[in-house]
Design a protein around this nucleic acid. Sequence first.
RNA 1: GCUGCCAUGGCUCAGUCGGUAGAGCGUCACCUUGGUAAGGUGGAGGUCACGGGUUCGAUUCCCGUUGGCAGCUCCA
Length: 668
Amino acid sequence: MIENKAVNSIKIKGREDKEMKVVLKDDSVKEYSEAKSVIDIAYDISEGLARMATAGELDGEVVDLRTMVDHDGELQILTSYDQKGLAALRHTTSHVLAEAVKNLYPEAKVAIGPSIDTGFYYDFECPPFTREDLDAIEKEMKKIIKAGAKIERFELPREEAIAFMKEKEEPYKVELIQDLPEDAILSFYDQGGFVDLCAGPHLMNVKSIKAFKLISSSGAYWRGSEKNKMLTRVYGTAFGNKEELNAYLEHLEEIKKRDHNKLGREMELFATVDVIGQGLPLLMPKGTIMIQELQRWVEDEEERRGYMRTKTPLMAKKDLYVISDHWGHYKEGMFVLGDEEKDEEVFALRPMTCPFQYYVYKQSQKSYRDLPCRYGETSTLFRNEDSGEMHGLTRVRQFTIAEGHLILTPEQVEEEFKACVDLAKYFLTTLGLESDVTYQLSLWDPKKQDKYLGNEEMWNEVQGMMREILQHLGIDAKEEVGDAAFYGPKLDIQAKNVYGKEDTMITVQLDMFLAERFDMYYVDKNGEKKRPYIIHRTSLGCYERTLAWLIEKYAGLFPTWLCPEQVKVLPISEKYHDYANQVANQLKARSVRCSVDERGEKIGYKIRDARMNKIPYMLVVGAKEEEEGVVSVRSRYLGDEGQKSLDVFMDDICKEIKTKEIRKIVEE
RNA sequence: GCUGCCAUGGCUCAGUCGGUAGAGCGUCACCUUGGUAAGGUGGAGGUCACGGGUUCGAUUCCCGUUGGCAGCUCCA
């Protein structure tokens, strides 16, 4: 059956038919003597292609299948195998969703329904949907698809378009049209009577939707503002065929197994307790080992790179935050102890370490010879996040960060900034995470100047410096307006979790304002007082969040040096318990985290157990013949420096304990 | 903070149209066991998140609280 029937497409008035050449994807050329629609050209190429076509890409711009090609150009026919083509398919599916909702809930008002990375959504003003409702809506969608309405496009002048949507009692559409520029083309798509305002592109027929699924429903603010009404959003996804859809749905199940919030609890790395509170995870003994390993590593490396360590209070009088202006900007996000109205002294738990380290700096008069001055602190911070924001280890109310501040002369800024980035990259690379990050340059929003310290000129200067440094570093950072700290722009190193949600893992920030507020200075060569620049930075970010990232990255199969338990010694029967303990003691003497499994069960159980607990090394201890000890080493190579060094170490250990015979079995 | 969903042994879940609970896996003990993801037998373990209400009686129905999840909004 042919779903995409060639149609007599939108005739563009005032355009003469003429000779034209269309260059296709494979560089072949089609010549036409008159304007042709994209879908007609697709048919001309092949019927199979036309059937699969979802949109076109004309001279690099995604266009509707109905678009008339009336000039020489490059044309690619998009299908669901192209990302952009898939987006058109999903977008059309969202319209079918809207039609189904209107059929079942005539009082529902439609808002917007775009395609997104993972599928599509559509927002409605209507009561929330349950899973059963979604199933019913899916059923209705299937009915609509089976009926197979042709999708037709038409345009209306602005006033008529508004009148049209008013008549249909769709206030959100009216608002959308009113907010579009005066000269915008207002296109509509009609699928068998259901008409939606939409820029397109869309398929030719709803029948081409072969595989879709409604995923979930939730609330979402109209136009993304919490001041607006909350609408009901339905998320769904669609693919070119059922196999791809099923593979995607299976993938969703698979990634749940890597979710740090689930796996981290299962592996007893952390836990939460309702009476302790939201966003306050307990790090269990195993999780603590991992955090400690990271922390010692970071502290040692920072000292090697010229940092001085500080240890400053977890709270301070509010006066401190008034000076930094955190009180003005972020009081809502702080845990305040005491009542400003009643108490003489009000304290607050610290949400950052900056002002504390500034007072470390200010304890003596500094010369330019004292700079760069690098302070590092393993710093526990407290932020009163909104109740709906807490999540596992990635968004918590108390966390510990590898924080630091560098006090610098202007000449030192570039070199030190680069060193900060280099340090961060070193940590990421060693952990095997470097390829998973993206860089973001977070800039201020000149439209909201009251949110920031300083003025436009100063911001332009400091942002300019930062761009230049990034350019010198060869870092291609995506610029994000409005994401800066109130005291300066940031280079944010971002990573995505298993669900694709992005978080800042590491940040390096340039600040030319706070030194002034804290009256920090150094004396230059000429004996004059000068304001220093300050870099706020973290080298490995927040330990809790980094742990979450590692759990998801390695699905719990960590590099050996981080593993809470590195080696399990498995005696094949009770006879070898003594020998197993002897082996374990030798390992422990070398600081290997190991234990002996003395349960009287079959060796198979023990191996299974060690695997399930994601222990990288298993030493199977026993003898083939009486009096002969056999040690076989099972090793899983994970590919990072820490692992490598432990592998070498394990080789040595094995040689040492080789009194009889050693076999090393490398799995994969 | 907003909208919705959820809360039953360590885990995954069943169940009670209102009469104080069950499975599988795990765990523990004993037996068995010389080999790479499941040997046998027996046992322990639950105030069905917490607090109120309705009721002769609430794990079940209603309200509230706390916590968890998804999304939105926020994130120094």
